[in-house]
Design a binder for these strands. Structure first.
Lengths: 134, 134, 134, 134
DNA sequence: GTGGTCTAGACCACC
DNA sequence: GTGGTCTAGACCACG
């Protein structure tokens, strides 16, 4: 788990940790069942307070992303989204709006944006649509 | 400017205003030169503190999205990104990572995500790539 | 908000606070839109650390029970369960199993248990089944 | 004793064991005098540490639910509640409050809750009220 | 004044 | 050893 955290960014430190862990899982760098560093270890390597790491872990647990087992550690859970389909759609649309809005204001043209999207998509382990009968 | 603001959302109210205005511009609902409501008017219609609207306007101005002409009002500026290409690329990539990460954890498959992206893109006025010589 | 908290009980203090608030809402002592005491006020009256109250409030917010508005306070939200029907059923069944198991081991007979249930139900504002067409 | 234990649940493993054994007794799947598996056997089948099983057995013994006869094993004891009537009433009321509170927040209506209660009650061997003179 | 974040450090329950 | 809870106290963003 080699990554860093930047206290000067507007995102809270515990949120940065959450994002990074979810990102690693989404990219396949962490898989179901893998053990995460202990709260204390990660706190030591990031040079932050263990409580901050603990908060990130706990929130990830309530999101269903990881699962802590008392006394033995914290592990990557299997994907099983807890949000209702409606909320999921809303969330994706919100992110898309943000993306296109920023792209517009940075004067990015449609083609190069679509290029970036396709390139970036490759480094994530997105699932493939199930066809009827499979 | 008919929109609402939800004080119970985690996004700060002034950020919601900024996003909404930038989003309207990006969708073509507001164009360069259009006049925005006064701080007081917008505050009245959104039923919030005028300082909050003021903060949003001020930040949008430093971003170069709008411009205030003393005495005559606030207007939508023309697009002229102030960020360096490197920063722009970093920002887009950050948004893309967030998008794909969330999509993964919501168990969205690649095809339907790409579908949503294309559909949503249509409601934004993204520019077309400039060809050599144009 | 006159209630107390017992640090010697096995339930964590922040959980006791959560239960008590949810219980008051369920009994109609608190209604949608009502303002809860501020974090600092409640901490003072319960003679505990503000962080502990804050934790309870935050978790209640993620459960959708209350809603905090930055700068102005914390309010009772309207009921809108976030759990899937399957999880809800599982949770109720778990509570019922616990109830009947305890009742058995306390040698409580069925009739007096049912009596207690009916009596206790009266002090809660349980909704009435919607009939077809209503 | 075919049951499993889930280390990722918030309930401690030894508590899960206690609940499951008490539940089985309350449902009539285990009766007074029945022999429980040895600590080692149960630990092996549940794939957990023997100390954890030992802790559960020990606490069940102090509750009077089971009794250990050195050399011959552990057996289900006869029901003989050790709590005072006042404490028992308090405990039942606490469970009922929890039940109705959760039901309210899950928007469960009174009729279907009462239905669930009656259905679930059938799988437990609750005693029948002793009439005067019996 | 409101809640949110972070730290430092203590103590505890679990396995 | 693991994570979870709580305290005391500082600082910050929001409206």
């Amino acid at each position: 788990m080699l990554f860093t955290v930047d206290p000067s960014r507007s995102e809270a430190v515990y949120v940065q940790i959450m994002h990074e862990i979810k990102r690693r899982i989404a990219r396949g760098l962490l898989s179901t069942g893998d053990r995460l560093p202990t709260v204390r270890d990660l706190a030591r390597t990031l040079v932050i307070n263990p409580n901050t790491v603990g908060k990130a872990y706990q929130l990830l647990e309530t999101e269903g992303v990881i699962s802590t087992r008392r006394g033995s550690g914290t592990f990557v859970a299997s994907v099983s989204p807890r949000l209702s389909p409606a909320l999921r759609r809303e969330r994706v649309n919100r992110l898309l709006d943000q993306l296109f809005t920023e792209a517009y204001h940075m004067a990015l043209d449609e083609d190069s944006l679509m290029d970036s999207i396709k390139k970036r998509a490759k480094s994530f382990r997105l699932s493939v649509k199930r066809r009827r009968g499979e």
